[in-house]
Amino acid sequence: MRRTTDIEHLLNPLLQTSAVELLAISPPGWGANLLRGLTNSIQIAVGAFGLGLAIGIAGVWGKLYGSPVVRDLMEIYTTFVRAVPELVLILLLYYAGTDLINRALEQFGYATVDISGLAAGIGVLGIVQGAYATEVIRGAILAIPQGQIEAARAYGMPPGKMLRRITLPAMLPFAIPGLANLWLIATKDTALLAVVGFNELTQETRQAGATTKAYFTFFVAAGVLYLLLTLFSNVIIGRIERWARRGMPPIAETGR
Protein backbone atom coordinates (compact mmCIF):
# COMPACT_ATOMS: atom_id res chain seq x y z
CA MET A 1 0.00 0.00 0.00
CA ARG A 2 2.65 2.45 1.03
CA ARG A 3 4.78 1.49 -1.92
CA THR A 4 2.11 2.45 -4.48
CA THR A 5 1.59 5.82 -2.84
CA ASP A 6 5.33 6.39 -3.02
CA ILE A 7 5.28 5.71 -6.71
CA GLU A 8 2.27 7.92 -7.16
CA HIS A 9 4.05 10.64 -5.27
CA LEU A 10 7.01 10.30 -7.57
CA LEU A 11 4.94 10.30 -10.72
CA ASN A 12 2.55 13.04 -9.66
CA PRO A 13 4.48 15.92 -11.18
CA LEU A 14 4.67 14.01 -14.45
CA LEU A 15 1.00 13.04 -14.45
CA GLN A 16 -0.09 16.56 -13.76
CA THR A 17 1.55 17.99 -16.82
CA SER A 18 -0.95 19.77 -18.97
CA ALA A 19 -0.72 17.23 -21.81
CA VAL A 20 -2.22 14.44 -19.72
CA GLU A 21 -5.02 16.64 -18.44
CA LEU A 22 -5.78 17.96 -21.89
CA LEU A 23 -5.97 14.51 -23.40
CA ALA A 24 -8.13 13.01 -20.64
CA ILE A 25 -11.25 11.23 -21.83
CA SER A 26 -13.57 12.89 -19.28
CA PRO A 27 -15.05 16.32 -20.19
CA PRO A 28 -12.37 18.77 -19.04
CA GLY A 29 -9.99 16.84 -21.27
CA TRP A 30 -10.47 16.56 -25.02
CA GLY A 31 -9.69 12.85 -25.40
CA ALA A 32 -13.34 11.95 -26.01
CA ASN A 33 -13.56 14.50 -28.82
CA LEU A 34 -10.48 13.11 -30.50
CA LEU A 35 -11.77 9.55 -30.25
CA ARG A 36 -15.13 10.63 -31.66
CA GLY A 37 -13.26 12.25 -34.53
CA LEU A 38 -11.30 9.04 -35.05
CA THR A 39 -14.49 6.94 -35.25
CA ASN A 40 -15.92 9.42 -37.76
CA SER A 41 -12.72 9.19 -39.80
CA ILE A 42 -12.78 5.39 -39.77
CA GLN A 43 -16.47 5.36 -40.75
CA ILE A 44 -15.79 7.60 -43.74
CA ALA A 45 -12.69 5.63 -44.72
CA VAL A 46 -14.55 2.30 -44.62
CA GLY A 47 -17.51 3.70 -46.54
CA ALA A 48 -15.34 5.45 -49.12
CA PHE A 49 -13.15 2.39 -49.61
CA GLY A 50 -16.20 0.15 -50.08
CA LEU A 51 -17.81 2.55 -52.52
CA GLY A 52 -14.51 2.96 -54.32
CA LEU A 53 -14.18 -0.81 -54.64
CA ALA A 54 -17.67 -1.08 -56.11
CA ILE A 55 -16.98 1.77 -58.56
CA GLY A 56 -13.63 0.20 -59.33
CA ILE A 57 -15.11 -3.18 -60.25
CA ALA A 58 -17.76 -1.49 -62.41
CA GLY A 59 -15.08 0.70 -63.96
CA VAL A 60 -12.90 -2.27 -64.81
CA TRP A 61 -15.87 -4.00 -66.38
CA GLY A 62 -16.36 -0.90 -68.52
CA LYS A 63 -12.70 -0.54 -69.37
CA LEU A 64 -12.00 -4.16 -70.27
CA TYR A 65 -15.27 -5.42 -71.69
CA GLY A 66 -17.36 -2.29 -72.39
CA SER A 67 -18.17 -0.71 -75.72
CA PRO A 68 -15.64 1.80 -77.12
CA VAL A 69 -17.69 4.74 -75.83
CA VAL A 70 -17.89 3.32 -72.31
CA ARG A 71 -14.17 2.62 -72.44
CA ASP A 72 -13.36 6.19 -73.39
CA LEU A 73 -15.69 7.63 -70.75
CA MET A 74 -13.99 5.46 -68.10
CA GLU A 75 -10.61 6.64 -69.32
CA ILE A 76 -11.74 10.27 -68.98
CA TYR A 77 -13.06 9.59 -65.46
CA THR A 78 -9.88 7.95 -64.18
CA THR A 79 -7.59 10.47 -65.85
CA PHE A 80 -9.54 13.46 -64.59
CA VAL A 81 -9.80 12.22 -61.01
CA ARG A 82 -6.15 11.22 -60.85
CA ALA A 83 -4.91 14.53 -62.25
CA VAL A 84 -6.97 16.96 -60.16
CA PRO A 85 -6.18 17.46 -56.46
CA GLU A 86 -8.50 15.68 -54.05
CA LEU A 87 -9.18 18.95 -52.28
CA VAL A 88 -10.55 20.51 -55.48
CA LEU A 89 -12.59 17.40 -56.26
CA ILE A 90 -14.01 17.39 -52.76
CA LEU A 91 -15.15 21.00 -53.07
CA LEU A 92 -16.44 20.47 -56.61
CA LEU A 93 -18.35 17.28 -55.81
CA TYR A 94 -19.49 18.54 -52.41
CA TYR A 95 -21.07 21.73 -53.77
CA ALA A 96 -22.14 20.33 -57.12
CA GLY A 97 -23.39 17.04 -55.63
CA THR A 98 -25.59 18.58 -52.93
CA ASP A 99 -26.77 21.26 -55.34
CA LEU A 100 -27.72 18.78 -58.06
CA ILE A 101 -29.53 16.45 -55.66
CA ASN A 102 -31.53 19.32 -54.18
CA ARG A 103 -32.40 20.68 -57.62
CA ALA A 104 -33.53 17.25 -58.72
CA LEU A 105 -35.67 16.91 -55.59
CA GLU A 106 -37.21 20.34 -56.25
CA GLN A 107 -37.99 19.34 -59.82
CA PHE A 108 -39.92 16.34 -58.64
CA GLY A 109 -41.71 18.35 -55.99
CA TYR A 110 -39.94 17.06 -52.90
CA ALA A 111 -38.59 19.24 -50.13
CA THR A 112 -34.83 19.89 -50.25
CA VAL A 113 -32.67 17.89 -47.88
CA ASP A 114 -29.54 18.69 -45.97
CA ILE A 115 -27.09 16.03 -47.01
CA SER A 116 -25.18 14.83 -43.98
CA GLY A 117 -21.46 15.42 -43.88
CA LEU A 118 -20.92 11.69 -43.47
CA ALA A 119 -22.82 10.75 -46.64
CA ALA A 120 -21.24 13.56 -48.65
CA GLY A 121 -17.77 12.63 -47.42
CA ILE A 122 -18.23 8.97 -48.26
CA GLY A 123 -19.64 9.83 -51.68
CA VAL A 124 -16.88 12.25 -52.59
CA LEU A 125 -13.97 10.15 -51.36
CA GLY A 126 -15.60 7.04 -52.85
CA ILE A 127 -15.60 8.61 -56.31
CA VAL A 128 -11.92 9.55 -55.88
CA GLN A 129 -11.04 6.05 -54.62
CA GLY A 130 -13.01 4.49 -57.45
CA ALA A 131 -10.69 5.96 -60.07
CA TYR A 132 -7.60 4.55 -58.39
CA ALA A 133 -9.31 1.22 -57.64
CA THR A 134 -10.21 0.90 -61.33
CA GLU A 135 -6.55 1.12 -62.29
CA VAL A 136 -5.42 -1.25 -59.54
CA ILE A 137 -8.01 -3.92 -60.36
CA ARG A 138 -7.47 -3.53 -64.10
CA GLY A 139 -3.76 -4.16 -63.66
CA ALA A 140 -4.49 -7.18 -61.48
CA ILE A 141 -6.93 -8.71 -63.95
CA LEU A 142 -4.46 -8.20 -66.78
CA ALA A 143 -1.85 -10.01 -64.69
CA ILE A 144 -3.93 -13.21 -64.49
CA PRO A 145 -2.39 -15.88 -66.73
CA GLN A 146 -4.59 -15.92 -69.82
CA GLY A 147 -4.75 -19.71 -69.81
CA GLN A 148 -6.88 -19.68 -66.65
CA ILE A 149 -9.54 -17.52 -68.30
CA GLU A 150 -9.41 -19.55 -71.48
CA ALA A 151 -9.80 -22.73 -69.47
CA ALA A 152 -12.85 -21.27 -67.75
CA ARG A 153 -14.30 -20.37 -71.14
CA ALA A 154 -13.54 -23.85 -72.43
CA TYR A 155 -15.51 -25.29 -69.52
CA GLY A 156 -18.44 -23.25 -70.76
CA MET A 157 -18.71 -20.99 -67.72
CA PRO A 158 -21.06 -18.04 -68.18
CA PRO A 159 -19.36 -14.62 -67.63
CA GLY A 160 -20.85 -14.09 -64.16
CA LYS A 161 -19.66 -17.45 -62.90
CA MET A 162 -16.26 -16.93 -64.50
CA LEU A 163 -15.93 -13.61 -62.70
CA ARG A 164 -16.94 -15.12 -59.36
CA ARG A 165 -14.96 -18.35 -59.59
CA ILE A 166 -11.88 -17.50 -61.64
CA THR A 167 -11.25 -13.83 -62.31
CA LEU A 168 -11.87 -12.37 -58.84
CA PRO A 169 -10.01 -15.03 -56.79
CA ALA A 170 -7.12 -15.18 -59.26
CA MET A 171 -6.65 -11.42 -59.44
CA LEU A 172 -6.81 -10.94 -55.66
CA PRO A 173 -3.11 -11.60 -54.89
CA PHE A 174 -2.13 -9.09 -57.59
CA ALA A 175 -4.66 -6.51 -56.44
CA ILE A 176 -4.14 -6.63 -52.68
CA PRO A 177 -0.94 -4.57 -52.41
CA GLY A 178 -2.51 -1.79 -54.49
CA LEU A 179 -5.83 -2.00 -52.67
CA ALA A 180 -4.05 -1.97 -49.30
CA ASN A 181 -2.29 1.21 -50.39
CA LEU A 182 -5.67 2.64 -51.36
CA TRP A 183 -7.10 1.85 -47.94
CA LEU A 184 -4.19 3.67 -46.27
CA ILE A 185 -4.77 6.61 -48.62
CA ALA A 186 -8.47 6.52 -47.73
CA THR A 187 -7.75 6.79 -44.01
CA LYS A 188 -5.47 9.76 -44.62
CA ASP A 189 -7.70 11.46 -47.18
CA THR A 190 -10.47 11.72 -44.61
CA ALA A 191 -8.38 14.53 -43.11
CA LEU A 192 -9.16 16.59 -46.22
CA LEU A 193 -12.83 16.72 -45.21
CA ALA A 194 -11.70 19.00 -42.38
CA VAL A 195 -11.50 21.71 -45.03
CA VAL A 196 -15.24 21.49 -45.72
CA GLY A 197 -15.86 21.50 -41.97
CA PHE A 198 -16.70 17.87 -41.30
CA ASN A 199 -15.93 16.77 -37.74
CA GLU A 200 -13.38 14.06 -38.39
CA LEU A 201 -10.18 13.64 -36.42
CA THR A 202 -8.15 16.50 -37.88
CA GLN A 203 -10.99 19.00 -37.55
CA GLU A 204 -11.73 17.93 -33.96
CA THR A 205 -8.04 18.29 -33.21
CA ARG A 206 -7.91 21.77 -34.64
CA GLN A 207 -10.96 22.77 -32.62
CA ALA A 208 -9.41 21.38 -29.44
CA GLY A 209 -6.19 23.20 -30.24
CA ALA A 210 -7.95 26.46 -31.00
CA THR A 211 -9.87 26.34 -27.70
CA THR A 212 -6.96 25.42 -25.45
CA LYS A 213 -4.09 26.95 -27.48
CA ALA A 214 -2.19 23.68 -26.97
CA TYR A 215 -1.96 23.02 -30.71
CA PHE A 216 1.26 21.07 -30.48
CA THR A 217 -0.01 18.54 -27.93
CA PHE A 218 -3.21 17.86 -29.82
CA PHE A 219 -1.70 17.55 -33.26
CA VAL A 220 0.93 15.15 -31.97
CA ALA A 221 -1.80 13.12 -30.23
CA ALA A 222 -3.86 12.99 -33.44
CA GLY A 223 -0.76 12.00 -35.38
CA VAL A 224 -0.24 9.10 -32.98
CA LEU A 225 -3.86 8.01 -33.50
CA TYR A 226 -3.47 8.09 -37.30
CA LEU A 227 -0.19 6.22 -37.04
CA LEU A 228 -1.74 3.54 -34.82
CA LEU A 229 -4.55 3.15 -37.36
CA THR A 230 -1.98 2.72 -40.15
CA LEU A 231 0.15 0.23 -38.23
CA PHE A 232 -2.93 -1.75 -37.16
CA SER A 233 -4.11 -1.76 -40.80
CA ASN A 234 -0.71 -3.04 -41.88
CA VAL A 235 -1.00 -6.04 -39.56
CA ILE A 236 -4.47 -6.90 -40.90
CA ILE A 237 -3.33 -6.35 -44.50
CA GLY A 238 -0.42 -8.72 -43.97
CA ARG A 239 -2.85 -11.42 -42.80
CA ILE A 240 -5.22 -10.86 -45.72
CA GLU A 241 -2.35 -10.98 -48.17
CA ARG A 242 -1.11 -14.25 -46.76
CA TRP A 243 -4.62 -15.66 -47.05
CA ALA A 244 -5.04 -14.44 -50.65
CA ARG A 245 -1.67 -15.85 -51.67
CA ARG A 246 -2.33 -19.26 -50.10
CA GLY A 247 -1.09 -22.05 -52.29
CA MET A 248 1.15 -19.72 -54.28
CA PRO A 249 4.95 -19.80 -54.17
CA PRO A 250 6.36 -17.31 -51.66
CA ILE A 251 7.87 -14.08 -53.03
CA ALA A 252 11.60 -13.74 -52.49
CA GLU A 253 11.58 -10.03 -51.67
CA THR A 254 8.84 -8.49 -49.56
CA GLY A 255 8.53 -5.74 -52.10
CA ARG A 256 5.39 -3.94 -51.06
Partner: peptide, 23 residues
Protein backbone atom coordinates in the same frame (compact mmCIF):
# COMPACT_ATOMS: atom_id res chain seq x y z
CA UNK B 1 9.34 7.22 -43.48
CA UNK B 2 6.75 5.24 -41.50
CA UNK B 3 5.66 8.19 -39.39
CA UNK B 4 5.37 10.62 -42.30
CA UNK B 5 3.62 8.09 -44.53
CA UNK B 6 1.33 6.99 -41.73
CA UNK B 7 -0.16 10.40 -40.95
CA UNK B 8 -2.08 12.80 -43.18
CA UNK B 9 -0.13 15.62 -44.77
CA UNK B 10 -2.77 18.12 -43.67
CA UNK B 11 -2.12 17.14 -40.06
CA UNK B 12 1.66 17.49 -40.49
CA UNK B 13 1.16 20.90 -42.06
CA UNK B 14 -1.06 22.09 -39.23
CA UNK B 15 1.25 20.56 -36.63
CA UNK B 16 4.14 22.61 -38.03
CA UNK B 17 2.19 25.81 -38.65
CA UNK B 18 -0.12 25.96 -35.66
CA UNK B 19 1.90 23.73 -33.31
CA UNK B 20 5.45 24.96 -33.82
CA UNK B 21 4.10 28.37 -34.75
CA UNK B 22 2.51 28.66 -31.32
CA UNK B 23 5.57 27.26 -29.53
Amino acid sequence: CTVIRGTPLLLQLWLLYYGLGSL
